[in-house]
């Protein structure tokens, strides 16, 4: 991956400075029949922060992200991005970028064409496609069909798509999955510089050790409910590691 370019791709130059939180989830509930996937969840994300979104499998992380990004409708409550429901954003790609699954590609389409298709729909100039390919280090295989890509390359292609519109918010579900150590290091550095430039990151993950090195704050949910919202500094002040806190909170909540 090229490490020279990320500094130019943060949202710093545009910094939307408002009192409004970048993400505001209020009393969000999502039911599937009788099953409550997300239960009265409330949280907010401030600009310039990296927030880890943690919880056991089935805790409701992915459902929350899908509602936040307009793929699913809330049963009750609301999820706002820059003060509005995602579906009402006029140019969403220029505000928010997301990677929800590691393999949302047509296997027979090239990496570059995948990005081109999205850039066209978002009215983003084609030159930006080459910029993000360079940014994530996929210039060489860009013309190859995605079915020849490794998991790590697919992760980087997904991230490239999320970055097409130079967004101010990144929502990532397990972005380090499949990345090699150099890729993980690059991602951590990138997210840090993205946030330092005023950007906001919400990253769902199970990789606690990696999260502990990357994020400012953590949201921990279990059974669809928020069980902790804290900064890593606060945890350290109590002499707890992230893993201690996570295991204590989620096993307690589960039992």
């Amino acid at each position: 991956m090229s490490s020279h370019a990320y500094g130019n791709n943060g949202p710093s130059s545009r910094g939307v400075v408002t009192a409004e939180p970048v993400v505001a989830v209020t009393s969000l509930t999502k039911r599937f029949g009788a099953f409550v996937a997300v239960d009265d969840l409330t949280f907010a994300l401030e600009a310039g922060t990296v927030t880890g979104f943690l919880g056991p499998n089935g805790a409701g992380k992915t459902t929350t992200l899908r509602v936040l990004l307009g793929l699913a409708e809330p049963t009750a409550g609301r999820a706002l991005v820059f003060g509005r429901p995602y579906q009402e954003l006029e140019q969403p790609a220029r505000l928010a970028g997301a990677v929800l699954e590691s393999n949302d590609f047509h296997p027979g389409r090239s990496g570059r064409d995948h990005l081109r298709v999205l850039a066209l729909a978002a009215d983003i100039p084609p030159s930006r496609v080459d910029e993000v390919l360079d940014l994530v280090g996929l210039v060489a295989p860009a013309a190859r069909q995605v079915k020849t890509y490794s998991l790590g390359m697919r992760q980087r292609l997904g991230l490239a798509a999320a970055l097409l519109g130079e967004p101010e918010l990144l929502v990532l579900d397990e972005p380090a999955n499949g990345l090699d150590p150099a890729g993980v290091h690059w991602l951590r550095t990138f997210l840090r510089s993205f946030a330092d430039g005023g950007g906001t990151v919400l990253v769902a993950s199970h990789a606690l050790a990696e999260v502990a090195q990357t994020v400012d704050r953590v949201l921990i949910i279990d059974g669809g409910r928020l069980v902790a919202s804290t900064s890593l500094e606060e945890l350290a002040g109590r002499g707890q590691t992230l893993e201690d806190a996570y295991l204590q909170l989620t096993t307690e909540a589960a039992s």
């Binding site: 969403p92 949302d104 047509h106 999205l118 978002a122």
Partner: peptide
Amino acid sequence: HGTIRPTFLVTP
């Protein structure tokens, strides 16, 4: 193929 997700993320 799951491309419906990026499609709807770009055009919600």
